[in-house]
Design a protein around this nucleic acid. Structure first.
Lengths: 195, 195
DNA sequence: GTCTATACCGCGATAGAC
DNA sequence: GTCTATCGCGGTATAGAC
């Protein structure tokens, strides 16, 4: 069976990234060794280097894939020209997307300082694109008079920080369903922009 | 001069904490070595162990001192029974206090996972006390009918995340003064609670 | 109180057998 | 494709001289 020849290789690459994501999120990039990752995958440490150039590249690839997925998902949302409806869509999307990727989100925020300069710049560019999307949405609402905001840029920062904060306290099976959390946060977002 | 005998000891302890704060904030606890801290202080690595039991204790002491200072400063604010005025006072206090302690704040949020279980529990207790203070303030405003909030606990989480987020983008000498930033955030906070 | 020296360990990464 | 073995380095922490 010639097919068998490459089957484990096709599995090992993604497995390495899964294990690294888990361990980096739990203990932090600097605190996790390549040997630990290898143990989680079930291979020897040297084997990792068949799939990644080095530890830094492994971190960058995880963060880059996450940010790219975030932007792709944002752009895949149904178009929505009405500012208030667009803001509600963004709010619910942000909470759901980030909630479903708790580990990747954690890494994307916490491990920025462990990226080498060039890698850092690439991730920051993607993050800025996301922030700018919200900022422009808010500006449209201000232009139509539906929102009342002294500074749309700061408002974008403030809202993103507020919404991402859900990840720090939300636990599956807790007091509130995620749907209910979306409702409560949307209520605060709507009021905060003066709509 | 017998006084001289202990003078350097009285200086070295705080110096170690200053340097550790700086390095932990910049590179992360796990990425910083005791040798680096010693070099920053200007002593040999072994000397650090005259002032701290180990690296973990050094981290815990920094975080604990920060959280204790935060609560002490909060409790030292002039009493304010009127909910709207109290919320404005809290908003401005939070932004100013956190802005003035950028490094300690960063560590207090980022290095929680590097604390051993017992140390983690102690820090979490202090953090919860701070959150509860805001939650109860919001509840008073709901009780008087001045605030309109579906869930004061979530609102407390949301507002703290939003306000702490200032630290991620604010830079001295940037487009806006801190006083102006306080105004803009207070405007959003006031609206978000339905006041 | 600070130094030098060092024990002991685990790190990232590579070489070469199979 | 994965293994074993290893290089060279740097980690935390301690011992003992001064």
């Amino acid at each position: 069976m010639a097919r068998k020849k490459h089957s484990s290789a096709e599995i090992t690459g993604p497995r390495i990234r899964d294990v690294a994501l888990e361990l980096f999120a739990r203990h932090g990039y600097a605190a996790v060794s390549m040997r630990q990752i290898a143990e989680g995958v079930g291979v020897q440490a040297g084997t990792l280097y068949l799939y990644t150039a080095d530890k830094q590249t492994l971190l960058f690839d995880l963060m880059h894939a996450h940010m790219q997925e975030l932007l792709d998902a944002l752009n895949a949302l149904p178009p929505c020209s009405e500012p208030l409806a667009a803001l509600e869509q963004f709010t619910r999307f942000h909470i759901r997307f980030h909630r479903a990727r708790e580990k990747a989100v954690f890494i994307a925020y916490m491990e920025l300082r462990n990226l080498e300069t060039a890698n850092f710049a690439r991730i920051e560019t993607l993050r800025r694109a996301y922030e700018t999307h919200l900022e422009q949405l808010l500006q449209r609402g201000v232009a139509t008079g539906q929102f009342s905001l002294p500074d749309p840029k700061l408002a974008a920062f403030a809202l993103i920080a507020m919404l991402t904060g859900v990840n720090t306290w939300y636990r599956e099976g807790g007091r509130l369903s995620l749907e209910r959390v979306e409702e409560i946060y949307w209520d605060m977002v709507r009021k905060a922009v003066g709509a």
